[in-house]
């Protein structure tokens, strides 16, 4: 009898590859730190993010002799603590990014499954609709959707509408990635075997096609999450997302911009760095995940 060698499952293999990738692990670590700090903002923030005091407005942070003790990153024009506002603001910006991406992911998976598996008329309708959405620049489309919806339904929070807008804008890309994966899986012999057994269409789709075609879209989502967060901040910056006095990063940046000229660089720089670090960490993680899932890059192919 042949001796069976203990082999790794595919998931274990991916995790192993990912752990070998130092930049990806760094990205994941950074993302976790940011996530924990923002989620636990009430615990970590030294001040109330909306506690204003005009007497201490526009004061620099620890690098200057002029700083107020306890306000490490300085204060904004209303005298609010910038560090606390960044921690609280992350809750808004990151959750807009996450929820929007989740929305796009769910919609994309459903549309991609239907159009890839059934083909024909459904495929044509869905893909042409997707093409139309693709024809517009993403951010511009998100701006129009968020702006229009907020005008039409002023009772609903603008943050909700920016989530919906970003979600809609990202759906087409998700649907295309999913459709491509489904087209490949649909033609495999094990799916044909299911037809031969007599499995119902729903059973084939949910038990066999769906789990086998999720890998590419998961990787893609990690990369898109970074862009979604950036877009969330951009909508805030452009004024269709969160409204003052929300500490949302994009909005903070937008307001602080006016004081840059008078030398108050810290009020704009630190929210900017927060956006940068979140996007960077997710990009590093996404890149690593993509490499780990692609067996051709195993062992770290170098060019």
């Amino acid at each position: 009898m042949e001796k069976t060698v203990k082999r790794r499952t595919r998931t274990q293999d991916v995790i192993r590859q990912l752990r070998k990738n130092k930049t990806a692990m760094f990205g994941m670590g950074m993302m976790l730190v940011i996530f924990i700090l923002c989620a636990g903002a009430p615990l970590f923030a030294p001040h109330d993010p909306n506690d204003s005091d005009l007497y201490r407005g526009n004061r620099p942070g620890f690098w200057s002799s002029d700083h107020i003790p306890g306000f490490w990153l300085g204060t904004d024009y209303l005298g609010r603590d910038i560090l606390s506002r960044i921690l609280y603001g992350g809750r808004v910006t990151l959750s807009v990014g996450f929820v929007a991406l989740g929305f796009a992911l769910v919609m994309g998976v459903i549309l991609g499954l239907v159009s890839g598996y059934f083909g024909g008329l459904a495929d044509n309708l869905i893909m042409r609709f997707v093409d139309i959405l693709f024809a517009f620049p993403a951010l511009l489309l998100a701006l129009v959707i968020a702006g229009t919806l907020a005008q039409r339904y002023p009772d609903v929070s603008r943050i909700t509408w920016s989530m919906v807008a970003i979600g809609i804008v990202y759906t087409p890309q998700m649907a295309r990635v999913m459709r491509g994966a489904v087209l490949v899986i649909k033609e495999t012999e094990y799916i044909e075997a299911e037809h031969a057994i007599g499995s119902s269409t729903w059973r084939i789709i949910f038990k066999h096609v769906l789990p086998n075609s999720l890998a590419p879209i998961i990787v893609y989502s990690t990369l898109m999450l970074a862009t979604a967060i950036l877009d969330a901040a951009a909508l805030g910056f452009l004024g269709v997302g969160a409204q003052a006095p929300s500490p949302e990063w994009g909005l903070s940046l937008s307001i602080a911009r006016k004081y840059l000229i008078s030398g108050v660089w810290w009020a704009a720089t630190f929210p900017g760095i927060a956006i940068l670090l979140s996007v960077l960490s997710l990009n590093l993680l996404g890149d690593g995940l993509r490499d780990a899932l692609d067996p051709r890059l195993k062992g770290g192919a170098k060019l």
Partner: peptide
């Protein structure tokens, strides 16, 4: 469906014909 119970197929490719998940 009721005939599917009575007939089945064995595939050539032992790698592609089993759902890897």
């Amino acid at each position: 469906r009721k005939y599917r119970k009575k007939m089945s197929i064995i595939y050539q490719d032992p790698f592609g014909s089993l759902d890897p998940r």
